[in-house]
Design a protein around this nucleic acid. Structure first.
Length: 232
DNA sequence: GCGACAG
DNA sequence: ATCTTGTCGC
C-alpha cells in the first residue's frame, strides 16, 4: 500500500501543518534578486510517478547553449513519502530532486524547476525550496496557475503579462513561450529576479511550449520510468 | 457549505 | 502526476 492510500489512516514525519510552518520559516532565505553573469549551461528538473509501485523518478538534464546539446543527465528513484497537496508539492518532490542534484558534475548557471516559486500561497513553492537548499539560481516554470490573477497575454510568442497576488503585488509572469498555445507561469525560485527569469525562459524556449531544459527533463524521467516499470 | 487547487 | 487511441487542426 502506498503513502497516498495510507494518508487517510496514519503516519508520516512531517504533517501538513508542520510543512506549512516550515515554509513560513524558510521563505525568509529566498533571494529574489540577481542576474546571470553568463549562460553557458542550463538545466531542467522534473519528476515522474509510477502509480503501481508508488515510486518517483526525479531527473535533471544539463544542456549547453547555444545549441541545447545535452551534456549530462542524472536521476534518482525514491518511494513516495508525502501525498500531493496543493501548496505542499515541495515536500513530495524535493528529496528525490536533491538526490539527483547531488550527482550533477556540470554545475549549470541556472536550473529550471517544473513548478512555482514565489507565486505560492506562502511565497515558497518547489522552485524556492530547492533553490534555497542548493543555493543556486533557480527559475520556477509551471504549466498552470496555483494562485494569483492575470490577464491573458497576447497570443504571439514572447508576449507576457504579470501575475498578481491579492494585494496587487507582482508574484510572477505569464509567458507565451510559443504562439498559439497556452502560456507558462514563470516565477522566482532563488538568486534571480523576475525580469531575468522571464528573459532566460524565453532564451531557452526552442519552439515548444516548455523551455528546452524542462522539456528534456520531462522526456528523460518519462523514459526512465517506462524502462524500469517492471523492475521492483 | 462551495469552489480553487503546481505535480 | 496518471489512466489512455485515435483524431481534429495548424
Amino acid at each position: 500500500m502506498c503513502i497516498d492510500r495510507r494518508f487517510s489512516r496514519h503516519a508520516w514525519r512531517v504533517t501538513p501543518e508542520h510543512a506549512r510552518r516550515l515554509q513560513e520559516e524558510l521563505r525568509h532565505f529566498v533571494i529574489p534578486i540577481g542576474t546571470l553573469s553568463q549562460l553557458h549551461l542550463v538545466a531542467g528538473a522534473d519528476v515522474a510517478y509510477d502509480r503501481p509501485s508508488c515510486r518517483m523518478f526525479a531527473g535533471i538534464v544539463v544542456l549547453q547553449l547555444p545549441d541545447f546539446q545535452i551534456v549530462e543527465t542524472r536521476m534518482a528513484v525514491r518511494q513516495t513519502t508525502f501525498p500531493y497537496i496543493p501548496g505542499l508539492l515541495s515536500f513530495r518532490e524535493t528529496p528525490a530532486l536533491l538526490a539527483a542534484w547531488k550527482q550533477v558534475s556540470h554545475t549549470p548557471d541556472v536550473l529550471f524547476i517544473d513548478g512555482h516559486g514565489l507565486s505560492h500561497p506562502r511565497r515558497f513553492g518547489l522552485a524556492c525550496h530547492v533553490g534555497v537548499l542548493i543555493d543556486r539560481p533557480v527559475i520556477g516554470c509551471a504549466k498552470s496557475r496555483l494562485i494569483g490573477t492575470y490577464e491573458e497575454p497576447p497570443p504571439t510568442r514572447g508576449s507576457t503579462s504579470w501575475l498578481y497576488d491579492e494585494t496587487g503585488h507582482i508574484i510572477g509572469a505569464v509567458v507565451r513561450t510559443r504562439g498559439g498555445t497556452r502560456p507558462v507561469f514563470v516565477s522566482v525560485g532563488h538568486r534571480i529576479d523576475l525580469q531575468e527569469a522571464v528573459r532566460v525562459t524565453l532564451l531557452c524556449s526552442k519552439g515548444y511550449r516548455l523551455p528546452e531544459p524542462i522539456r528534456q527533463a520531462d522526456q528523460f524521467v518519462e523514459r526512465i520510468k517506462r524502462a524500469r516499470r517492471r523492475t521492483s
